[in-house]
Nucleic acid binder design. Structure first.
Lengths: 223, 223
DNA sequence: ACGCACCTATCTATCGTCCGATAGGTAACT
DNA sequence: AGTTACCTATCGGACGATAGATAGGTGCGT
């Protein structure tokens, strides 16, 4: 045998580290990053705070890894829509549906990217902002394309993008699985709200259903 | 002289306490409440942290008073619109303009009511949520009224209200006085975005101008 | 089959630092 | 004399992080 060390039994994917991260996400979401202590995170799994350092280098690393991975998931969802849908109106609807579905399925993780960037170290914050700008530019591209082809009547491209993103992100704060509306309904309504915001025509329910089904499958299967 | 103590010379309105509060708002907005220390707040005014306790009972009181007063200002703005405008579409536009103007003029103070409620004590948090619900119900009333009179074509009243509020609140995060668009433009665009969201017809610039002027005067004159 | 090396996942104990808050004093102004 | 607005000094506690120990498991050479 030559070369690098073998990885024989397929390592456990850091399962315990992920459990800790999930508990941390829950606490970061409800109490805020700064107000959450390592002792609380440890207590959620029944271990001592010092044991966290076997799995993670620092408290901030737990947060950054959460933010990075959900931002990657968000961008990957949008890209998958762009690959499959050529028309700007269906692209906008698809991106919105993905955004809403992710924030509804994983609110605790997904919301951190919008509320806790300021708690990151400078380098990590810059990396997160780059990812956010990249996602934003995908949406801006769709709006510009739709306006150029007269599918949309956009008041202002940037303001429209900000408005759409903020109302979709907001879903993560109030959505409950046992609430008045199903996830399918919430996602479909927001897609049509976004189309209204962009000055486009709403999609029929028959066009919306596959978009929502796709987004749910995409984000449930992630990782 | 009988009865309660006199208030003769019109007291100094706690000017120094307000200065401290303004410095605190700046830091709470950029770093977050938990990450901000009393020593930093004091340093901003060139005094020692212990001196803060001459003006304020606790760190949390500074925050709650900020949240309470801006929420009162927000609700008062909306009520002043309802008193002056009878039509639902102009009411919606007026409320949105007020919301946007307040968040653009005082972003540091106004944003705290949406991001730092979780840092309040239970009693204060409940009080803040009551005020938020009261404001929300004003907007819900306008949307329902407009839908009943066929001025609006609302997809879902609650989701529409949440969407409108979130996109207006979001302005406080990115708006800059020296940015691409003037405050008048930003406010007018958001009013029309809200009308689109509610399924109503946009207002002409001539109808928008006095609404914006009124909101600016209202919030600049506050206190 | 046994023994040694190493890994995993936790523990106890503790470090230096910083936090919000309090007590008591003081200079300047009214 | 009283009030205002600060100061110095300090408290108890909690924080993130580190050091070092340990029990149990895995794998491999002999």
């Amino acid at each position: 045998m030559s070369g690098r060390a073998t990885v024989p039994t397929r390592p456990p994917e850091r399962a315990r580290a992920r459990e800790l991260q999930r508990a941390a996400a829950e606490l970061f979401f409800t109490k805020g990053y700064e107000a959450t202590t390592l002792r609380e995170i440890a207590r959620a799994l029944g271990i001592k705070s010092a044991s966290i350092y076997y799995h993670w280098d620092s408290k901030e690393t737990i947060l950054f890894d959460l933010i990075r991975s959900t931002m990657e998931q968000l961008t990957a969802g949008a890209r998958s829509v762009l690959e499959r849908e050529p028309a700007a109106d269906r692209r906008l609807a698809g991106i919105v549906v993905h955004h809403v579905v992710l924030h509804a399925l994983r609110p605790k993780e997904a919301t951190l990217g919008d509320t806790e960037l300021r708690s990151l170290t400078r380098a990590h914050a810059r990396a997160a902002m780059r990812m956010r700008d990249e996602y934003e530019s995908l949406l801006l591209g769709v709006l510009e394309d739709g306006a150029r082809r007269d599918l949309f009547d956009v008041l202002d491209v940037k303001l429209t993008a900000y408005a759409v993103i903020s109302q979709c992100t907001n879903v993560g704060i109030w959505y409950r699985p046992d609430g008045r509306l199903s996830l399918d309904e919430v996602a479909a309504v927001h897609a049509n709200l976004a189309l209204r915001t962009a000055g486009g025509r709403e999609l029929a329910a028959s066009a919306m259903t596959p978009l929502v089904a796709d987004a749910k499958a995409f984000h449930e299967a992630w990782r």
